[in-house]
Amino acid sequence: MSAVSGLALIPLLFTAPAAAETADINYVALGDSYSSGLGTRDYDDSACKRGPAAYPELWAASNATASYDFVACAGATTDDVLANQISALEQGTDLVTITIGGNDVGFADVITTCRTGSNADCDEVGEEAENEVRDVLPGLLEETYTAITEAAPSAQVVVLGYPRLFEMGSCGFGSIGEPKRERLNQMADTLGDAIADHATAAGLTHVDVRDNFDGHGVCADDPWLNGTTVPLDESYHPNGAGHAEGYLPALTGALA
């Protein structure tokens, strides 16, 4: 073996342990419907609407993990995470992902009111929700983040946010009007900014997915979010592309 070819092998010798480390990851996926996969139309768990097209499933399938526990559940609030999901964490958990907060401020009810009510109705419920984000949500997030880090003290905790739901412009018959879409996007930003601030303050890894979904909201030519659908509970949630093209690359990038 020549000196040059011998030296060429040195980087390989030093990079090999990194591959071994990825195989040791113990991953737990917590959260609400944006983590469980509601909206993808393919579920293994009909109660929590957990499915194989959800971003935690996609990440776990493409990475060598020592263990993987998927406990995110549609409709979950911070109280549900504390009561029903935290128990999945252990001292040896290495990675935790979570989306949470939207149900605590009644965002689903806000969307329903904006879809069926007047612009004034939408403004009113939007203001109420934003007050909840400012006054109530911080304490709930702090309690939840603290419980996660205490239950899994060695884990990297990745808090993923929510996308803006809508694009502006023409949207077809029966769609939500543009003023309401703008108002709902403003509320999504208020919620997203609060989650970012509190996750960062807690020393966790925050992943903002709003830019990833930009141009792919409801009313886009290539939407990654469902509009009003049947069944109704899948409305305004990421579809399969939203998880594969929106959430998964954002998570992968944060862990790179």
Score class of each variant (00 low, 15 high):
residue 205 T to M: 02
residue 206 H to V: 02
residue 193 D to Y: 04
residue 198 H to G: 03
residue 201 A to W: 11
residue 205 T to N: 06
residue 164 R to W: 03
residue 180 K to P: 09
residue 193 D to G: 02
residue 167 E to L: 04
residue 179 P to G: 06
residue 195 I to P: 03
residue 178 E to C: 02
residue 175 S to G: 15
residue 188 A to H: 03
residue 156 Q to K: 07
residue 190 T to Q: 11
residue 168 M to E: 15
residue 172 G to H: 09
residue 203 G to Q: 13
residue 176 I to S: 04
residue 201 A to D: 10
residue 159 V to C: 02
residue 196 A to P: 00
residue 199 A to E: 08
residue 169 G to T: 07
residue 169 G to K: 03
residue 161 G to S: 12
residue 179 P to V: 11
residue 177 G to K: 10
residue 198 H to L: 13
residue 203 G to D: 14
residue 164 R to I: 12
residue 194 A to Q: 13
residue 162 Y to R: 00
residue 175 S to C: 15
residue 171 C to N: 07
residue 165 L to W: 07
residue 157 V to F: 05
residue 169 G to W: 13
residue 187 M to Q: 12
residue 187 M to H: 11
residue 203 G to K: 10
residue 174 G to N: 06
residue 172 G to W: 13
residue 188 A to V: 11
residue 198 H to Y: 13
residue 205 T to A: 09
residue 185 N to Q: 12
residue 202 A to H: 02
residue 164 R to A: 05
residue 204 L to T: 08
residue 175 S to L: 06
residue 195 I to E: 07
residue 165 L to T: 05
residue 154 S to K: 13
residue 200 T to C: 09
residue 160 L to I: 15
residue 172 G to F: 14
residue 164 R to M: 09
residue 176 I to P: 02
residue 201 A to M: 00
residue 197 D to A: 13
residue 155 A to V: 00
residue 179 P to F: 01
residue 161 G to T: 01
residue 189 D to H: 00
residue 181 R to L: 11
residue 188 A to G: 13
residue 206 H to E: 13
residue 162 Y to P: 01
residue 194 A to C: 03
residue 178 E to V: 03
residue 167 E to V: 08
residue 176 I to Y: 09
residue 153 P to T: 11
residue 176 I to G: 11
residue 202 A to T: 01
residue 182 E to F: 05
residue 185 N to R: 10
residue 186 Q to M: 10
residue 182 E to T: 10
residue 162 Y to E: 07
residue 183 R to E: 14
residue 177 G to H: 00
residue 159 V to A: 11
residue 158 V to T: 09
residue 182 E to G: 09
residue 195 I to G: 02
residue 171 C to D: 11
residue 199 A to V: 03
